[in-house]
Design a binder for these strands. Structure first.
Length: 246
DNA sequence: CACCAGGCCGTGC
DNA sequence: GCACGGCATGGT
């Protein structure tokens, strides 16, 4: 089994995780500090089993994607298995609002500053990401002071409209996309990330600056439906591949 | 100094 | 409908 846990956890779908000098991954989730070395440490924990989507056959998907065309074959073979995490709706929403016109390193920094400021300490020096309720009293000036910049009013709007997040699940994909985009600062790219990495919608295909490059160069006459039924996973492999230098 | 980062909003046509 | 500038901040 060739799993690329580092790419899954630190490659841009979650900003909750960090890797220490011994190769251990840790994150505060579900009011607990989780520390794992590999997926085998997650299988026995019900929360992590769900979070890591362990019930899905990623090996089968990987093979299906790799056999689709030469580019996908290269992309898949360039890395180990990438999974689609099942993250908390609120955390994913704020995370990807923070992600716009930003880079992974700085997004992670903002995530941690919000946690320290509005969350609570769960283990020494480790803070939970704040719930919408915990962020309720935040002001725009305060959020800007933490470095969120022009995204500050978007976060405030998300707090205001947090109830939307519990109404997404039953909706068809396009309706779910549209509903998420009623929150300021959420456009098509951010909405698709939220749907994939929190609502298990595998038909999402986030188009960021990297993926626009991939599509223009390798799939000029194609659109995301070409990758059906593995849109999201194909996108993850292509994203990882192009970002690593193809 | 420039340009970029897992984009979106407001405006103008 | 599409094109464009602006936007906070930190890194290269």
């Amino acid at each position: 089994m060739n799993e690329n846990l580092r790419e899954t956890l630190l490659g841009g779908q979650s900003f909750s995780w960090r890797e220490d000098e011994n190769g251990l991954f840790s994150a505060v989730l579900n009011e607990k500090l989780y520390t794992i070395r590999g997926l085998e440490d997650a299988a026995s924990d019900p929360f992590l089993y769900d979070y890591f989507d362990l019930g899905y056959d990623y090996e089968k998907a990987r093979e299906a994607i790799a056999s689709k065309d030469d580019i996908l074959h290269q992309a898949v073979e360039s890395t180990g298995t990438i999974r689609l995490l099942k993250q908390d709706h609120w955390i994913a929403t704020i995370s990807f609002i923070l992600s716009q016109n930003n880079n992974i390193k700085r997004i992670t920094g903002l995530y941690n500053r919000l946690s320290k400021r509005y969350g609570h300490e769960v283990a020494p020096g480790r803070y939970s990401f704040p719930t919408a309720e915990e962020m309720k009293g935040a002001s725009e000036a305060e959020l800007r002071a933490l470095g969120t910049g022009f995204r500050a009013p978007f976060i405030l709007d998300a707090i205001e409209k947090k109830d939307i997040l519990s109404e997404i699940d039953p909706l068809p994909f396009d309706d779910a996309m549209a509903k998420l985009q009623t929150i300021k600062g959420i456009g098509p790219k951010v909405a698709s990330c939220i749907l994939i990495f929190s609502y298990q919608r595998r038909e999402g295909f986030p188009m960021d600056v990297w993926m626009k490059k991939v599509m223009k160069e390798y799939y000029p006459d194609k659109d995301p439906s070409y990758f059906h039924p593995y849109e999201a996973l194909s996108q993850q492999y292509l994203f990882s591949w192009i970002r690593a230098g193809s």
